[in-house]
Design a protein around this nucleic acid. Structure first.
Lengths: 262, 262
DNA sequence: CAGTGGTCTAGACCACTGG
DNA sequence: CAGTGGTCTAGACCACTGC
């Protein structure tokens, strides 16, 4: 294989040959990573499926196995792919994940999230409306664009614990209804994958302590003055494209938000 | 180099040769990683210093450069080492880190943590006492063991924002005083490194929404009924040994706790 | 048993840093 | 310029999975 500076054979993106101040050098494996990412976005391999073996990909991209490996390593580190020794490399999915909710960091105080069983879910509302300025900004839309708003309550052991409002861009989620949300069993992000081809890849949360208003008090069944965790999440698909804004209120008397630092 | 199952030459730990049900296979690079970790714990290389080059380590452990590389890669991913191309690999430190507080996730609402400048710090209290049952359990001590308790307030733009109580095991932190804490400029964990040979490597936080009591209201200058973020942190040194319990109250009207999910 | 990912090696060369 | 980490290759072998 040609190893001259900044090329990757036929398949990869050639670098700049001219003497730039910043040659924008990008290693081969990064270019391969980009190509694999494109295939993931394009839907060539679907969530849960196996991607071609390292040897096959090496042949396809005219690159050594080691270079493909390093590309896949990074994608696996980003939770976009999952490696399983002896079986293959698979496209990550929010379904069939042994942890029910990959992005939910609220856990019961006695660390045993198994014993409390799955959450009970109730869709309170699901309507289509025009995006306000802040919703639009968060989702990368224009004010007035069509968005879907969903309000739901999650209960653990029959105790309402989470009240969530979420906003989705109208176009990619055309056809999403309260019925569909109610019928579906499993993580909401799994439904997004199978029904709308939207894969949530990463998210960012902003957390505050707040007091509930009247409506929120009623839905969560708490008294005025009960402090709640306000969790605002923006979830992204590939290419850092925002695809969901979520505003959650968490009751933290029997649960807590758990975070690891390193 | 001998590549027979589960050996790593002279330096590494030999595996089990007998036909066990679980042969406890551990790859060479993992064993090398363990050896490097031992040297880090033992203080052979101090925080901020460079460790030997990959070639030197390869020679020392009788292993190829690639194997050392993979070991260092994982340690760097765990934030224990920092690679700098052309210069060397360095022991991570809480000092000289361009981000002032590596473990503090509270940021101003206008993302610009530069403009507000460094935090003002005030040590309210620093005393030695006997560990209560819950403090002892969190720190892996016995009830009644000597612990150091520190209470301090952090202010941003002259506004009290964080009230923290922290408990440290008495023995490793012998000689820590309020004066020392007040004089020192820089992250507290950096002082722990240089003065007490304690390196905080990772931490776990449990977050809740709470209301302040009388004393807390006074120290933070907030009214009764103001919701606050309660952040309980346990920080660990090497070997998952707990070395600090910290209970913080964060004011979240101008700041928020920021978290990335993936 | 074949096929997959995982480990390990040896060697070449590249990009970056500092004297 | 020498020394460091970073990339890439080709090939061998190991551990795990499923038929």
């Amino acid at each position: 294989m040609n190893t001259s500076t900044n090329t990757a054979g036929d398949a990869a993106i050639a670098g700049t040959d001219t003497a730039n101040a910043t040659p924008a050098f990008s290693p081969l494996y990064q270019q391969i990573k980009g190509l694999i990412l494109q295939s993931l976005q394009g839907g060539e391999w679907r969530p849960g499926e196996a991607i071609p073996s390292e040897m096959e990909l090496a042949a396809r991209y005219r690159v050594s196995q080691g270079t493909v490996r390093k590309a896949i390593d990074e994608l696996a580190a980003d939770n976009l792919l999952i490696r399983r020794q002896g079986k293959g490399t698979f496209v990550a999915t929010h379904a069939e994940h042994h942890v029910q909710y990959r992005f939910l960091k609220l856990v019961p105080d006695n660390g045993d999230s198994q014993s409390e069983g799955p959450a009970q879910r109730e869709i309170v509302e699901c309507k289509r409306l025009r995006a306000s300025a802040d919703i639009a900004r968060a989702l990368g839309l224009r004010t007035g664009d069509s968005v879907l708003q969903v309000r739901r309550v999650l209960s653990f052991a029959n105790r309402p614990t989470i009240l969530e409002d979420l906003w989705l861009p109208g176009t990619p989620f055309k056809g999403l209804t309260a019925e569909r949300l109610t019928q579906y069993h499993g993580p909401m992000y799994a439904l997004f994958e199978t029904e709308f081809d939207v894969r949530m890849v990463r998210a960012e949360e902003h957390i505050r302590a707040v007091l509930p208003d009247e409506a929120q008090m009623k839905l969560l069944g708490v008294a005025a003055g009960t402090p709640l965790l306000s969790v605002e999440r923006i979830a992204y698909t590939y290419n850092d494209m925002p695809m969901e804004l979520r505003r959650g209120l968490y009751l933290t008397d029997t649960h807590h938000y758990r975070n690891e630092l390193s």
